[in-house]
Design a protein around this nucleic acid. Sequence first.
DNA 1: GGGAGCATGTAACGGGTTACATGATTGG
DNA 2: CCAATCATGTAACCCGTTACATGCTCCC
Lengths: 204, 204
Amino acid sequence: MKDASAPQQELPKLPNTAWAVLGLLSFPGERSGYDLKKWADSSLRFFYWSPALSQIYTELKRLEQLGFAVSRIASQDELRNKRLYSITDAGQRALAAWARETPAGPPVLKHGVALRVWMGHLSEPDELRKTLEEHRDWADRTLAEVQASEDTAHDRWPFPALVLRWSERYYQSERDLAEGMLADLDELFAKGDVHVAERPGGRG
Amino acid sequence: MKDASAPQQELPKLPNTAWAVLGLLSFPGERSGYDLKKWADSSLRFFYWSPALSQIYTELKRLEQLGFAVSRIASQDELRNKRLYSITDAGQRALAAWARETPAGPPVLKHGVALRVWMGHLSEPDELRKTLEEHRDWADRTLAEVQASEDTAHDRWPFPALVLRWSERYYQSERDLAEGMLADLDELFAKGDVHVAERPGGRG
DNA sequence: GGGAGCATGTAACGGGTTACATGATTGG
DNA sequence: CCAATCATGTAACCCGTTACATGCTCCC
């Protein structure tokens, strides 16, 4: 016989993006795909990433097919149809089950700048320093963007606000780390014992 | 007429992985695909990521076809063929040109733990705390792995060593950030004003 | 007039993963 | 004897991107 107290079973295997999109929808209100993209750009992208618009639309459709979301058309005219999505109870339950049952796993980092320094023997010292300085400046700018984001309306929900605070510290740290690497680089160059394997174009 | 002082033009559009693999090869010595995987696991993975073995083999073949690498078979017997790769001059030049001409771009971060906290309203406080504590412990373990890696032979090249030092600080920071988020979470819960949108299974 | 923002969608492509296939050697 | 490590490779699959297609409204 079936046990009524153990109902939730169907956790379809979906890409993380699908759950992230459903997560955006899990906050009160109706949103269009376009809205979600803007929100992702001003929030998710700082610690996760912002999916392409085309993928958001794709996921939204899939979510609706699964019964995790519903949409209605809110259009003044027929040509310009704006579709607003909202989460369903089933969607809310599935998302909660996913959060409960799927371990978050370690963060994925692809740090192109670090990779460049790792292969530092391929670049000229000045080039390397420039790359790092630009990265430090990028971290500064991103930090400013995070702070700007904290002032916007939808990021005042307690948990998103908390993660934005975390992001602030993260980019501050990213900046400091860049400075640290810069200092280490200078030290390395000062010692003069760096073997530049193959200077591009240079023969001797 | 052709200008002999501007020879390097053919920078084929390759995925970053290809350049990363070529980068591994740009250090003196011959290596098998298997060797490269081990090295990536103990080094690259801390700040970039470690491609699957199958992909390393694929890239290695592509690199050889392009003339950026050469291989020779070093086998005792016929069944067990071990193929050792090394970089060519053309490969060295192409890699240097790539490093010179392709901007590194911002780092890519996909922080699943932060995403979970962002959707904190879907989880019970204890679950959330547990996720964060595990993440902090993971950062500790990874830090220890970085330190262990610093003792191994191939990571004594100056630039790789420098990046490992950077990684050390990075994971130290990751740990601190986790602690900070934990503290913020506790504060949030203490205030008691957290609206848990839909507690799984809970109706009231 | 034109560019930016709003708004939705399809199609092609490929990067990278997991699963599978194979088999030797070494050490507990 | 079995697990782990060494060692290479193919095939299926799909996630996610870019490019493309369309057309509105608002503002300079």
